[in-house]
C-alpha cells in the first residue's frame, strides 16, 4: 500500500544499513560538526585534503535513514575529487533537492550517480533538510580548509 518506495529506495536503505566511510580521521584531517536543531540530528565530517584533492573523508554521528544514507553516498562520490569538483557536485545535489537553481555553470560531466535516488525526498519537503545536512557540513569544512 505504501507509496514510500520513492523515498526509501533500495540503494538508500543499502547505504543506511551499510554506510560507506563511516568513522573518524585523526588530525591533521579537519573535523566539522553539523546539527539539525529541529530534530537533533548531529553529524561530523572528517576531511583530509592534500594538494586540493580530497584524499580521504569519513562521517560519524547519528540521524535518520535519509541523512545517514545521503552522507554515506556523499563521502563515496567526493573521495579523490578536486575541491572544485566537490563543490560542483554539492551544487548539483542542492539543485536536485530544489534548494538551488541550476544556473548552467555546473560542468556537464559532474554527475550524481546513485545519489539521484534521493530525488524522492523532494516530495517530502520536511526531509530535504535531512538529506542536505551532511553536504552543508562538508561545504563548511571545505570553507575552513580554504581559510
Amino acid at each position: 500500500m505504501s507509496n514510500l518506495e520513492d523515498l526509501y529506495r533500495e540503494v538508500i536503505l543499502d547505504h543506511y544499513r551499510t554506510p560507506r566511510n563511516r568513522g573518524e580521521l585523526p588530525p591533521p584531517a579537519t573535523c566539522t560538526e553539523g546539527t539539525n536543531p529541529l530534530c537533533g540530528d548531529e553529524i561530523k565530517i572528517f576531511l583530509n585534503v592534500i594538494d586540493g584533492i580530497v584524499q580521504d573523508v569519513r562521517f560519524s554521528g547519528h540521524g535518520c535513514s535519509i541523512s545517514q544514507a545521503s552522507a554515506s553516498m556523499m563521502t563515496a562520490i567526493v573521495k579523490g575529487k578536486s575541491l572544485a569538483d566537490v563543490r560542483a557536485v554539492a551544487r548539483r545535489f542542492k539543485q536536485l533537492m530544489t534548494i538551488e537553481e541550476d544556473d548552467g555553470t555546473t560542468p556537464a560531466d559532474i554527475r550524481l550517480g546513485d545519489i539521484e535516488a534521493l530525488q524522492g525526498v523532494v516530495k517530502y519537503p520536511v526531509r530535504i533538510k535531512c538529506a542536505v545536512l551532511g553536504w552543508n557540513t562538508l561545504l563548511q569544512g571545505l570553507n575552513s580548509t580554504d581559510a
Partner: peptide, 28 residues
C-alpha cells in the same frame, strides 16, 4: 529505526506523531 523514519511511515497511514527531541534536549 530512527524516529523520523518511524513518523514518516506512520504519516503514510495518516497517523500524526511528533519525532524529535520535544524541546527537552537535556532529558533526551
Amino acid at each position: 529505526v530512527h524516529p523520523h523514519d518511524v513518523s514518516q511511515v506512520l504519516d503514510q497511514h495518516n497517523v500524526c506523531v511528533r519525532a524529535g527531541h520535544h524541546c527537552a534536549k537535556p532529558l533526551m
